[in-house]
Design a protein around this nucleic acid. Structure first.
Length: 1012
RNA sequence: GCUGAAGUGGUGGAAUUGGUAGACACGUUGGACUUAAAAUCCAAUGGCCAGAAAUGGCCGUGCGGGUUCAAGUCCCGCCUUCAGUACCA
């Protein structure tokens, strides 16, 4: 008797994962006759929480595509690595004193094991880790290239600093059209050559593509570091949600603004989702207009403004400067001084968030000074107001109350005249916004002209007067590149006389020093200030102890480290040649792999990583390192997988009110009476989480102020659940919601929850003296982001254990379109799992389910099913419509089962078709079919049209557009014959009810519609 | 406010150029097998109405219009949800 053969997915999957590892099945070659294809996933940050089912979604999709491309005869590069520098590891280090290197290594090991379980076809020989010195020496090297470059607008590319020096020494800087600091002054070649070395270096720093400058930065006091614009969400830090303030600091910046136009233009050449392109376009924020210079009366000063409406120049009735504008203190008159200073101070105190929150309030002060209108020479009062942003344009605006709503509101509020400049428009209530056709009036030489003509004429006139010129302005800011943190790439920079110097590239990597603690020093230096061995000996070219600094040969090293996006900006190129000791990647490797053909990742990186990466790629292209000038040809955003959360809602609850803002002392007093404090925002989560982890509440909230709106006693809740089998640690509380893991809200636990609710009402509410004790409760579900702190995480390991990786892979694809956000619902997984069992059965039709395939010729029906499936699956993969190909497989297996198909002619190609999706079962079946070697190397089945050719079609017959019945008719039947056949059908008569049809529409092969 | 995406059964979602709306799956209901359960298999399943049944009718893709022989799909005007962005001169 043949042995019983069940679908033992666990042992099958282990067997093939081992086989792939041993045989190096997915190693990509840098030379091949085959065409190349590069499939890349955004590499993960290896967090301590491990992967949840949302993370692999994109990896599965890209893996299917990579495997498909291999079947299609491509040499596929499909690598994986880790973005392993970052904040969480460092914060964990601060708490526990463990070296971030250690926790990072552990987390990576856990990630690797989880990834292996899912059966990805990654080429692990090429793994990169951004925190490894082997890797970050190239991050440092790119930084050095940026330092050694400047941007030439005339050539529209980056060039080397030595070239710039030679221009300076032969022509000075007047002919140079470069991206540089605004305050660079003109000099001749003679002057340049006479400058001291120090002065020359200072000037060069104003031109370098990465430069050190005093800039206003987003400072996050809680994190003790600066943040980039894209690391701030709604005015608070993306990580941790801490407040952010503006602060002036000396920082490294990247001159990404030099590339603004090319970053914009490049979007046309790449195949990215339109929403993503749009957000980059908005982020870069190009606007066309003019820059106009106004003389300040009685001062040797000018105010430069940027405007998109130079045509409204005769409507200017005042000017507004940002309170931070450098001219404010110079031009303010004695009489206005007090008021202005008070206003400037008040503005400085307000955080960016507060300023944002209260856009409606109009405020400002008159400086007492006047500017001169470039044409009428009339005096224009100069105001300051916080609606003008120092960080955009020139930090000053010419105010045209007739044409701009904010200027209009400001003018009305402060009773400033509103010159009427649009013909036939009443601007007494609101500013007039329509710009295209309305002619101007009271505008001297612009009278009667409409927008387009007037703009050009105004710019022309301004240029003649030397008072302005046409200008394109960008919203994009230079990117701050310094972080006051430990766990990041050190800068290969030391300071000589306060000026930055690069260490020689051949001494890279400059490795991260050991420090005694991962916190800033007492005098506010970044953590690297704690390192004892952190000075550069420029003669020996090595790192030496700080106490050897002599300012002659031994110098202090930079204490900042690079931001998170440094390591991720060019990692795609390192995968091409990850072990190269001489270069970022060898020329042949770069030549062969070019750039990424398909990139998968989340849309949250739209304006961060994806912009910086494009910037660095264009830069390295300019400097001849790369041939390509875009990193990612095609990009797909995978949607987030959301978690299903269950809540207990308290209805009609009263509040136990504390003061709005409380200090740590208040809280400590409070804790004497209560074990825990919760509110509806951050605090509830931080506190409950830390408390459950056994940490003190004070530690969790040290240094912060929170609004408290609700209070109750956690310990009693925990006590209640003790002995019920219900894990109370998994219940999570906020003001109005009690968050319960989904698996507990079922019939078995509803009784416990019911008890809990009534107990909670009786005990706790009375205890805590809610103002209104008559509360009731309700259980509901909500879909929200999957996160450890929300108790709605589903772990892929559990799914693999219970159903297998193939089921997980197919189910994640089956959930819906890859780009769409969708909730995870484990309930539906059984459908996919039983599909795989049915597939297995198809090959095991022998006695007791033993393996059995026949070598007989397949019948027509089975061939039709097979080729229909080949066609559809191929189209689906090409269109990234993975969800529909899963149903196609289901249909195929259902049909083949019904046909009792067991022919090799069908079952072999079927196994190949399915192998990108369910590689383990496919390998096993392939082996059972008698093949040696991995199925992943086999050619994709060829679609043959002739198996699908039909001789007849079941025509839907419609009357006035409504489908009434169908008729089987030959496909080669002529239009007239079809009409005749339909008209003689007995049912036709019935539906016509004796009327004569007005018209009969026959679309051969599609439909018949009778209009009556 | 601006920009973008999306609204289809109880649920996730199909419908590639306008041509049989609801594929495939979950769930639910009924049945088979079983002492029972699990597993497996079979059947039904958008709503309403008529009929014992076969079957037939009406309504139906966020709302209101329009184009067309024919609209989930195209056009115009709204509503809602989600995401990004925000005093950008």
């Amino acid at each position: 008797m043949a042995p019983m053969s069940k679908y033992e997915f666990n042992s099958i999957e282990k067997k093939w994962q081992q086989y792939w590892a041993e045989h190096n099945t997915f190693a990509a070659q840098n030379e091949s006759d085959k065409p190349k294809y590069y499939v890349l996933d955004m590499f993960p940050y290896p967090s301590g929480a491990g992967l949840h089912v949302g993370h692999p979604l994109g990896y599965i999709a890209s893996d299917i595509y990579a495997r498909y491309k291999r079947h299609k005869g491509f040499n596929v590069l499909h690598p994986m690595g880790y973005d392993s520098f970052g904040l969480p590891a460092e914060q964990y280090a601060i708490q526990t004193g463990q070296h971030p290197r250690k926790t990072t290594k552990e987390n990576i090991a856990r990630y690797r094991q989880q990834l292996d379980t899912i059966g990805f076809s990654f080429d692990w020989n090429r793994e990169v880790r951004t925190s490894s010195p082997k890797y970050y020496r190239w991050t440092q090297w790119i930084f050095m290239q940026l330092f050694e470059s400047w941007y030439d607008y005339n050539a529209d590319k980056a060039r080397s600093i030595p070239e710039l020096i030679s221009i300076f020494s032969s022509e000075g800087n007047t002919s140079v059209n470069a991206a540089c600091d605004a305050e660079v002054s003109d000099f001749s070649s003679e002057e340049w050559n006479d400058f001291s070395e120090e002065k020359q270096q200072k000037i060069l720093l104003q031109y370098r593509l990465t430069y050190l400058a005093e800039t206003e930065v987003n400072w996050c006091p809680a994190l003790g570091t600066v943040l980039a614009n894209d690391e701030i969400v709604n005015g608070v830090s993306e990580r941790g949600g801490h407040p952010v303030v503006r602060k002036k600091m000396k920082q490294w910046s990247m001159r990404i603004t030099a590339y603004a136009q090319r970053l914009l233009d490049g979007l046309d050449k790449i195949d990215w989702p339109q929403p993503l392109k749009d957000s980059q376009t908005n982020w870069i924020g190009r606007s066309e207009g003019a820059s106009i210079t106004f003389d300040v009366k009685d001062h040797d000063a000018t105010i430069e403004v940027f405007t998109t409406r130079p045509d409204t120049i005769f409507g200017v009735s005042f000017m507004t400067l940002a309170p931070e504008h450098p001219l404010v203190s110079k031009i303010t008159t004695e009489a206005q001084k007090e008021k202005i200073e008070a206003y400037v101070e008040a503005t400085a105190k307000r955080s960016e968030r507060e300023r944002m929150a209260d856009v409606k309030t109009i405020s400002g002060e008159f400086t007492g000074a006047y500017a001169e209108h470039p044409f009428t020479k009339e005096p224009i009062p100069i105001w300051i107001g916080d609606y003008v942003l120092a960080s955009y344009g020139t930090g000053a605006v010419m105010a045209v109350p007739a044409g701009d709503q904010r200027d209009h509101d400001f003018a009305r509020h402060f009773d400033i005249p509103i010159p009427d400049i649009f013909e036939g428009v009443d601007i007494s209530e609101e500013a007039y916004a329509e710009k295209d056709s309305t002619p101007l009036m009271n505008s001297d030489f612009l009278d009667g002209l409409s927008y387009n003509e007037a703009v050009n004429k105004a710019i022309e006139a301004l240029e003649q007067q030397g008072a302005g010129k046409g200008k394109i302005n960008y919203r994009l800011r230079d990117a701050v590149f310094s972080r006051q943190r430990y766990w990041g790439e050190p800068f290969p920079v030391f300071y000589k006389n306060g000026l930055p110097q690069l260490i020689d590239a051949k001494h890279l990597p400059l490795t991260l020093p050991e420090v005694s603690a991962y916190l800033p020093t007492e005098d506010g230096q970044p953590p690297l200030g704690r390192a004892d061995k952190w000075a550069w000996d420029s003669e020996k070219n090595e790192v030496v102890e700080n106490n050897k600094i002599d300012d002659e040969t031994v110098f202090p090293l930079e204490l900042n480290t690079m931001p998170g996006w440094a390591g991720s900006s060019c990692y795609l190129f390192r995968y091409m040649d990850p072990n190269n000791e001489e270069q970022l990647a060898g020329e042949e490797a770069l030549q062969y792999w070019q750039n990424v053909d398909l990139y998968l990742g989340g849309s949250e990186h739209a304006t961060g990583h994806l912009l910086y990466s494009r910037f660095w790629t264009k830069f390295l292209h300019d400097r001849g390192v790369l041939q390509v000038d875009e990193p990612f040809k095609k990009l797909i955003n995978q949607g987030m997988i959301l978690g299903d959360s269950a809540f207990l809602h308290r209805i009609n609850a009263g509040y136990y009110q504390l003061e709005d803002e409380v200090s740590i002392q208040d809280l400590n007093d409070f804790f004497e009476n209560f074990d825990a404090v919760f509110d509806s925002t951050l605090l509830g989560r931080i506190v409950s989480w830390n408390l459950l982890e056994g940490k003190k509440v004070e530690d969790a909230i040290a240094g912060e102020k929170y609004k408290l709106t609700d209070v109750f006693e956690l310990k009693k809740v925990v006590d209640f659940f003790e002995g019920t089998g219900f894990d109370a640690r998994r219940v999570y509380f906020t003001t109005s919601k009690i968050h319960v893991p989904v698996q507990y809200v079922d019939a078995k636990n509803s009784l416990i929850m019911k008890d809990f609710i009534s107990w909670y009402q009786d005990e706790l509410i009375n205890d805590i003296r809610f103002e209104n004790g008559n509360s009731s409760y309700d259980v509901s579900r909500e879909v929200e982001k999957m996160s450890k702190s929300k108790y709605n995480v589903v772990n892929p390991d559990d799914i693999c254990e219970q159903y297998g990786a193939d089921t997980l892979r197919m189910y994640e694809m089956f959930l819906g379109p890859i780009e769409q956000a969708k909730p995870w619902n484990t309930a539906g997984i059984t459908g996919v799992h039983s599909f795989l069992k049915k597939l297995w059965k198809l090959y095991h039709g022998g006695e007791n389910g033993s393996f059995q395939v026949s070598d007989d010729a397949a019948d027509k029906e089975s061939l039709k099913t097979l080729h229909k499936t080949i066609k559809k699956v191929e189209e689906d993969i090409e269109n990234f419509s993975f969800n529909t190909s899963v149903s196609t497989f289901m249909i195929a297996v259902n049909e083949l089962s019904a046909q009792n198909c067991n022919q090799r002619e069908i079952l072999e190609p079927l196994a190949i078709l399915i192998s990108p999706y369910a590689p383990h079962i496919a390998e096993e079946l392939w082996e059972k079919l008698g093949h040696n070697g991995s199925i992943s190397k086999v050619a994709f089945p060829k679609f043959e049209e002739n198996h699908l050719v039909e001789s007849s079609k079941e025509y839907p017959i419609s009357f006035n557009g409504k489908m009434r019945f169908t008729m089987e008719l030959p496909l080669d039947m002529s239009k007239d014959d079809i009409e005749a056949a339909v008209m003689t059908h007995e049912k036709t008569e019935q539906y016509l009810e004796g009327r004569t049809p007005k018209r009969v529409i026959v679309v051969p092969g599609k439909i018949v519609n009778i209009v009556g």
